[in-house]
Amino acid sequence: MSTEAQDQREALGARLRVFRKGAGYTSGRAFAAAAGWHESKVSRIEHGRQKPSEEDLRVWCEATGQQDQVADLIAVLRHINELWLEWKRQLKDGATSRQQKAIPVYAKTKLFRIWHPTLVWGALQTADYAADTFKQVVNFYDIPDDIESARDKRLERQKYLYEGDRAFHVILGEQALYSNFGGRNVMLEQLEWLLHVMRLPRLSLGFVPRAAPLWIWPGNSFSMFDSRLVLVETFSAELTVSKPSEIETYIKAFGLLKRSAVYGDSAKELIRGAIRYYDRY
Protein backbone atom coordinates (compact mmCIF):
# COMPACT_ATOMS: atom_id res chain seq x y z
CA MET A 1 0.00 0.00 0.00
CA SER A 2 1.23 3.53 -0.72
CA THR A 3 2.09 5.80 2.18
CA GLU A 4 -0.66 8.12 0.92
CA ALA A 5 -3.27 5.39 1.29
CA GLN A 6 -1.84 4.38 4.66
CA ASP A 7 -1.83 7.99 5.87
CA GLN A 8 -5.48 8.32 4.96
CA ARG A 9 -6.34 4.99 6.61
CA GLU A 10 -4.64 6.17 9.81
CA ALA A 11 -6.47 9.51 9.63
CA LEU A 12 -9.77 7.67 9.29
CA GLY A 13 -8.89 5.51 12.30
CA ALA A 14 -8.01 8.57 14.36
CA ARG A 15 -11.37 10.14 13.47
CA LEU A 16 -13.19 7.01 14.58
CA ARG A 17 -11.21 7.00 17.85
CA VAL A 18 -12.45 10.53 18.55
CA PHE A 19 -16.02 9.34 17.98
CA ARG A 20 -15.50 6.41 20.35
CA LYS A 21 -14.06 8.49 23.16
CA GLY A 22 -16.62 11.23 22.64
CA ALA A 23 -19.37 8.67 23.14
CA GLY A 24 -17.89 7.66 26.50
CA TYR A 25 -16.15 4.44 25.52
CA THR A 26 -12.85 4.97 27.27
CA SER A 27 -11.36 1.72 26.03
CA GLY A 28 -11.41 -0.22 22.81
CA ARG A 29 -12.49 -3.28 24.77
CA ALA A 30 -15.69 -1.59 25.96
CA PHE A 31 -16.52 -0.41 22.47
CA ALA A 32 -15.82 -3.84 20.96
CA ALA A 33 -18.22 -5.39 23.45
CA ALA A 34 -20.93 -2.91 22.50
CA ALA A 35 -20.38 -3.52 18.79
CA GLY A 36 -20.11 -7.28 19.15
CA TRP A 37 -16.56 -7.38 17.80
CA HIS A 38 -13.29 -8.86 18.93
CA GLU A 39 -11.45 -6.18 20.89
CA SER A 40 -8.37 -6.35 18.63
CA LYS A 41 -10.50 -5.21 15.67
CA VAL A 42 -11.07 -1.81 17.25
CA SER A 43 -7.36 -1.28 17.85
CA ARG A 44 -6.43 -2.38 14.32
CA ILE A 45 -8.96 -0.01 12.74
CA GLU A 46 -8.02 2.95 14.93
CA HIS A 47 -4.31 2.54 14.17
CA GLY A 48 -4.78 2.03 10.43
CA ARG A 49 -3.72 -1.61 10.44
CA GLN A 50 -7.12 -2.82 9.24
CA LYS A 51 -9.40 -1.16 6.73
CA PRO A 52 -13.00 -1.03 8.02
CA SER A 53 -15.84 -2.14 5.79
CA GLU A 54 -18.73 0.17 4.98
CA GLU A 55 -20.86 -1.85 7.38
CA ASP A 56 -18.21 -1.39 10.09
CA LEU A 57 -18.51 2.36 9.65
CA ARG A 58 -22.30 2.20 9.96
CA VAL A 59 -22.03 0.17 13.18
CA TRP A 60 -19.39 2.55 14.56
CA CYS A 61 -21.47 5.64 13.86
CA GLU A 62 -24.62 4.03 15.25
CA ALA A 63 -22.85 3.08 18.49
CA THR A 64 -21.34 6.54 18.93
CA GLY A 65 -24.32 8.67 17.90
CA GLN A 66 -22.61 9.91 14.75
CA GLN A 67 -25.12 8.64 12.19
CA ASP A 68 -24.91 11.91 10.25
CA GLN A 69 -21.22 11.15 9.51
CA VAL A 70 -21.83 7.81 7.76
CA ALA A 71 -22.00 9.14 4.20
CA ASP A 72 -18.84 11.20 4.62
CA LEU A 73 -16.87 8.33 6.15
CA ILE A 74 -17.95 5.94 3.40
CA ALA A 75 -16.78 8.47 0.80
CA VAL A 76 -13.39 8.60 2.54
CA LEU A 77 -13.20 4.81 2.60
CA ARG A 78 -14.01 4.53 -1.10
CA HIS A 79 -11.29 7.07 -1.90
CA ILE A 80 -8.77 4.96 0.03
CA ASN A 81 -9.89 1.94 -1.98
CA GLU A 82 -9.32 3.85 -5.21
CA LEU A 83 -5.69 4.50 -4.27
CA TRP A 84 -4.94 0.79 -4.58
CA LEU A 85 -6.94 -0.95 -7.29
CA GLU A 86 -6.52 -4.69 -7.58
CA TRP A 87 -6.15 -5.86 -11.17
CA LYS A 88 -8.69 -8.64 -10.71
CA ARG A 89 -11.26 -6.04 -9.74
CA GLN A 90 -10.28 -3.60 -12.50
CA LEU A 91 -10.25 -6.28 -15.17
CA LYS A 92 -13.23 -8.40 -14.10
CA ASP A 93 -15.10 -7.53 -17.33
CA GLY A 94 -11.98 -7.62 -19.51
CA ALA A 95 -9.12 -5.21 -20.27
CA THR A 96 -10.98 -2.78 -22.54
CA SER A 97 -12.61 -0.75 -19.76
CA ARG A 98 -9.25 -0.08 -18.11
CA GLN A 99 -7.84 1.14 -21.42
CA GLN A 100 -10.88 3.38 -21.94
CA LYS A 101 -10.41 4.82 -18.46
CA ALA A 102 -6.91 5.99 -19.41
CA ILE A 103 -7.96 8.09 -22.40
CA PRO A 104 -9.37 11.11 -20.47
CA VAL A 105 -6.22 11.15 -18.33
CA TYR A 106 -4.07 11.32 -21.46
CA ALA A 107 -6.30 13.98 -23.01
CA LYS A 108 -5.72 16.49 -20.20
CA THR A 109 -2.01 15.78 -19.62
CA LYS A 110 0.65 18.11 -21.04
CA LEU A 111 3.79 16.46 -19.64
CA PHE A 112 4.24 12.69 -19.57
CA ARG A 113 7.12 11.05 -17.71
CA ILE A 114 7.21 7.30 -18.27
CA TRP A 115 9.53 4.61 -16.96
CA HIS A 116 9.37 0.94 -17.86
CA PRO A 117 12.32 -1.38 -17.29
CA THR A 118 11.14 -4.40 -19.27
CA LEU A 119 8.68 -3.61 -22.06
CA VAL A 120 7.71 -0.93 -24.55
CA TRP A 121 5.33 1.70 -23.20
CA GLY A 122 1.74 1.27 -24.38
CA ALA A 123 1.48 4.42 -26.55
CA LEU A 124 4.58 3.33 -28.49
CA GLN A 125 3.42 -0.23 -29.13
CA THR A 126 2.49 -1.71 -32.49
CA ALA A 127 -0.86 -3.45 -32.86
CA ASP A 128 0.60 -6.97 -32.82
CA TYR A 129 2.90 -6.26 -29.88
CA ALA A 130 -0.02 -4.77 -27.90
CA ALA A 131 -2.24 -7.73 -28.75
CA ASP A 132 0.34 -10.15 -27.39
CA THR A 133 0.69 -8.23 -24.13
CA PHE A 134 -3.10 -8.38 -23.70
CA LYS A 135 -3.05 -12.09 -24.46
CA GLN A 136 -0.80 -12.49 -21.44
CA VAL A 137 -3.07 -10.27 -19.31
CA VAL A 138 -6.15 -12.35 -20.25
CA ASN A 139 -4.37 -15.61 -19.44
CA PHE A 140 -2.69 -14.43 -16.24
CA TYR A 141 -5.76 -12.85 -14.63
CA ASP A 142 -8.23 -15.32 -16.18
CA ILE A 143 -10.50 -12.54 -17.47
CA PRO A 144 -12.85 -12.33 -20.48
CA ASP A 145 -11.03 -12.38 -23.82
CA ASP A 146 -11.40 -8.88 -25.27
CA ILE A 147 -7.88 -8.67 -26.72
CA GLU A 148 -8.83 -6.91 -29.95
CA SER A 149 -10.95 -4.18 -28.37
CA ALA A 150 -8.41 -3.62 -25.56
CA ARG A 151 -5.64 -3.35 -28.15
CA ASP A 152 -7.63 -0.81 -30.18
CA LYS A 153 -8.30 1.31 -27.10
CA ARG A 154 -4.62 1.27 -26.19
CA LEU A 155 -3.62 2.33 -29.70
CA GLU A 156 -6.12 5.20 -29.48
CA ARG A 157 -3.69 6.89 -27.12
CA GLN A 158 -1.16 7.25 -29.94
CA LYS A 159 -3.10 10.21 -31.32
CA TYR A 160 -1.82 12.31 -28.44
CA LEU A 161 1.72 11.90 -29.77
CA TYR A 162 0.63 14.09 -32.67
CA GLU A 163 -1.90 16.47 -31.09
CA GLY A 164 -1.57 19.60 -29.00
CA ASP A 165 1.52 20.85 -27.21
CA ARG A 166 2.20 17.73 -25.15
CA ALA A 167 5.70 16.52 -24.27
CA PHE A 168 6.55 12.86 -23.76
CA HIS A 169 9.65 11.91 -21.78
CA VAL A 170 9.93 8.13 -21.97
CA ILE A 171 12.72 5.99 -20.52
CA LEU A 172 12.86 2.25 -21.10
CA GLY A 173 15.29 -0.32 -19.86
CA GLU A 174 17.38 -1.96 -22.58
CA GLN A 175 15.60 -5.20 -21.65
CA ALA A 176 12.43 -3.73 -23.21
CA LEU A 177 14.10 -4.16 -26.61
CA TYR A 178 14.55 -7.88 -26.03
CA SER A 179 11.47 -8.93 -24.01
CA ASN A 180 9.86 -11.19 -26.58
CA PHE A 181 6.18 -10.45 -27.16
CA GLY A 182 4.78 -12.26 -30.19
CA GLY A 183 7.94 -13.69 -31.67
CA ARG A 184 10.57 -12.56 -34.16
CA ASN A 185 8.40 -10.77 -36.73
CA VAL A 186 6.36 -8.91 -34.14
CA MET A 187 9.51 -7.78 -32.34
CA LEU A 188 11.22 -6.63 -35.55
CA GLU A 189 8.16 -4.56 -36.48
CA GLN A 190 8.07 -3.08 -32.97
CA LEU A 191 11.75 -2.17 -33.02
CA GLU A 192 11.49 -0.54 -36.44
CA TRP A 193 8.49 1.41 -35.17
CA LEU A 194 10.55 2.76 -32.27
CA LEU A 195 13.14 4.05 -34.74
CA HIS A 196 10.32 5.77 -36.62
CA VAL A 197 8.60 7.45 -33.66
CA MET A 198 11.92 8.69 -32.26
CA ARG A 199 11.76 11.35 -34.96
CA LEU A 200 8.70 12.95 -33.38
CA PRO A 201 9.73 16.35 -31.95
CA ARG A 202 7.47 15.99 -28.89
CA LEU A 203 8.93 12.60 -27.91
CA SER A 204 12.14 12.17 -25.92
CA LEU A 205 12.92 8.44 -25.90
CA GLY A 206 15.85 7.16 -23.88
CA PHE A 207 17.12 3.77 -22.79
CA VAL A 208 19.00 2.66 -19.71
CA PRO A 209 21.68 0.28 -21.07
CA ARG A 210 21.96 -3.01 -19.21
CA ALA A 211 25.49 -2.15 -18.03
CA ALA A 212 24.84 1.52 -17.29
CA PRO A 213 25.83 2.85 -13.86
CA LEU A 214 22.63 3.22 -11.86
CA TRP A 215 21.76 6.14 -9.58
CA ILE A 216 18.55 4.48 -8.42
CA TRP A 217 17.40 0.85 -8.53
CA PRO A 218 15.03 0.18 -11.47
CA GLY A 219 11.98 -0.63 -9.35
CA ASN A 220 8.48 -0.91 -10.82
CA SER A 221 7.27 0.79 -13.96
CA PHE A 222 5.43 4.06 -13.45
CA SER A 223 3.63 6.68 -15.52
CA MET A 224 3.53 10.31 -14.39
CA PHE A 225 0.88 12.69 -15.70
CA ASP A 226 2.00 16.29 -15.23
CA SER A 227 2.79 16.64 -11.52
CA ARG A 228 -0.66 15.60 -10.33
CA LEU A 229 -0.84 11.84 -10.78
CA VAL A 230 1.44 8.79 -10.86
CA LEU A 231 0.30 5.26 -11.69
CA VAL A 232 2.51 2.39 -10.53
CA GLU A 233 1.93 -1.15 -11.74
CA THR A 234 2.58 -4.36 -9.82
CA PHE A 235 1.47 -7.91 -10.57
CA SER A 236 -1.45 -7.65 -8.14
CA ALA A 237 -2.61 -4.06 -8.37
CA GLU A 238 -2.23 -0.56 -9.76
CA LEU A 239 -1.21 2.08 -7.25
CA THR A 240 -2.52 5.62 -7.67
CA VAL A 241 -0.31 8.37 -6.23
CA SER A 242 -1.65 11.92 -5.95
CA LYS A 243 -0.07 13.22 -2.74
CA PRO A 244 2.39 16.01 -3.70
CA SER A 245 5.21 14.77 -1.45
CA GLU A 246 4.98 11.27 -2.97
CA ILE A 247 4.86 12.65 -6.50
CA GLU A 248 8.09 14.51 -5.73
CA THR A 249 9.66 11.15 -4.89
CA TYR A 250 8.79 9.85 -8.36
CA ILE A 251 10.04 13.03 -10.01
CA LYS A 252 13.35 12.52 -8.21
CA ALA A 253 13.48 8.86 -9.23
CA PHE A 254 12.78 9.76 -12.86
CA GLY A 255 15.59 12.30 -12.81
CA LEU A 256 18.02 9.68 -11.48
CA LEU A 257 16.93 7.15 -14.12
CA LYS A 258 17.47 9.82 -16.76
CA ARG A 259 21.09 10.20 -15.63
CA SER A 260 21.66 6.57 -16.61
CA ALA A 261 19.81 6.78 -19.93
CA VAL A 262 21.20 7.31 -23.42
CA TYR A 263 19.45 9.23 -26.19
CA GLY A 264 19.77 10.08 -29.85
CA ASP A 265 22.29 8.08 -31.86
CA SER A 266 23.27 5.99 -28.83
CA ALA A 267 19.64 5.02 -28.28
CA LYS A 268 19.21 4.19 -31.96
CA GLU A 269 22.24 1.93 -31.83
CA LEU A 270 20.72 -0.01 -28.94
CA ILE A 271 17.57 -0.51 -31.01
CA ARG A 272 19.59 -1.58 -34.05
CA GLY A 273 21.50 -4.03 -31.87
CA ALA A 274 18.20 -5.62 -30.86
CA ILE A 275 17.13 -5.70 -34.53
CA ARG A 276 20.34 -7.55 -35.39
CA TYR A 277 19.60 -9.99 -32.58
CA TYR A 278 16.11 -10.75 -33.87
CA ASP A 279 17.36 -10.93 -37.45
CA ARG A 280 19.44 -13.91 -36.30
CA TYR A 281 16.66 -15.25 -34.07
Rank of each mutant, 00 (worst) to 15 (best):
T3E: 07
Q8F: 13
V18S: 11
R20V: 05
Y25E: 05
Y25C: 08
A33R: 04
A35C: 14
I45M: 05
E46F: 05
G48T: 10
G48I: 15
G48F: 10
K51D: 12
E55I: 14
D56N: 13
D56A: 14
E62H: 12
T64S: 07
L73Y: 06
E86F: 10
W87E: 01
Q90I: 13
Q90W: 10
L91F: 07
L91W: 05
A95S: 14
T96H: 06
T96P: 01
Q100W: 12
A102D: 13
L111I: 12
L111P: 07
I114S: 03
L124V: 01
Y129I: 02
A130I: 02
K135R: 12
V137M: 08
N139W: 08
F140C: 05
D152E: 08
K153P: 08
R157V: 10
Y160D: 04
Y160H: 11
E174D: 09
E174I: 01
L177K: 02
Y178M: 06
F181W: 14
G183H: 11
N185W: 03
V186K: 03
L191R: 02
L191K: 03
L194Q: 05
R199C: 09
I216C: 04
I216P: 04
W217P: 07
N220I: 01
M224K: 02
M224S: 03
S227Y: 06
R228T: 14
R228C: 11
V232N: 00
E233W: 00
E233K: 00
S236K: 07
T240K: 01
V241F: 00
S242N: 09
E246N: 08
E246M: 05
Y250V: 01
K258M: 09
R259V: 09
R259I: 10
A261D: 02
G264C: 14
K268C: 11
E269V: 12
E269Y: 12
L270W: 06
I275W: 06
R276F: 13
Y278F: 14
